[in-house]
Nucleic acid binder design. Structure first.
Length: 140
DNA sequence: GCCAACGTTGGC
DNA sequence: GCCAACGTTGGC
């Protein structure tokens, strides 16, 4: 348990559509509405216990906290064709200091992460060392 | 509000 | 199967 690290992800949401506070209020939220194949692949690769950064796009442009996957591999309830995937998440920890996109771009080690490279991808994967670094950045 | 990047669609 | 046109997304 201790040595096996979960997978790490980054989930983007527009705060006026679905914000971190909305998730906290709901206690558990379904991450649906994804209509991008790469993002779908990432969603399907998620497992219960994986952790994901919660990122506010368009407004804020910062990672505001960490969510945990509570249910994996469900089909998107908003999709009638049944082709798209979704997961359920719950808030795990809010960052003391949100990590902004500007900070991430200013960090050479994060310059080639999926968030920066594929700015339009709504569900990106995060490497463990990138995860650690961003967590550290949120503490200072 | 603008524009660049990317995905999708449709004509050939 | 290629590629141009178009729509959408997201950073600025």
């Amino acid at each position: 348990m201790a040595k096996d690290r979960p997978n790490y992800w980054l989930m983007k949401s527009e705060p006026f559509k679905y914000s971190w506070d909305d998730l906290v209020e709901e206690k558990e939220g379904t991450w649906d509405g994804v209509r991008n194949h790469l993002a779908k692949n990432n969603l399907q690769a998620m497992k219960v216990g994986d952790e994901a950064f919660f990122y506010h796009s368009r407004e804020g442009l910062e990672i505001v906290g960490i969510a945990e996957i509570t249910v994996d591999g469900i089909s998107d309830p908003t999709d009638e064709t049944g082709k798209w995937a979704a997961v359920k998440i719950k808030p795990k920890r809010k960052f003391d200091n949100p990590v902004t996109l500007k900070q991430i771009k200013a960090e050479p080690k994060l310059a080639d992460c999926e968030l920066v490279r594929l700015s339009r991808l709504s569900v990106a994967s995060i490497k463990p060392d990138e995860w650690d670094l961003i967590c550290k950045m949120s503490e200072s």
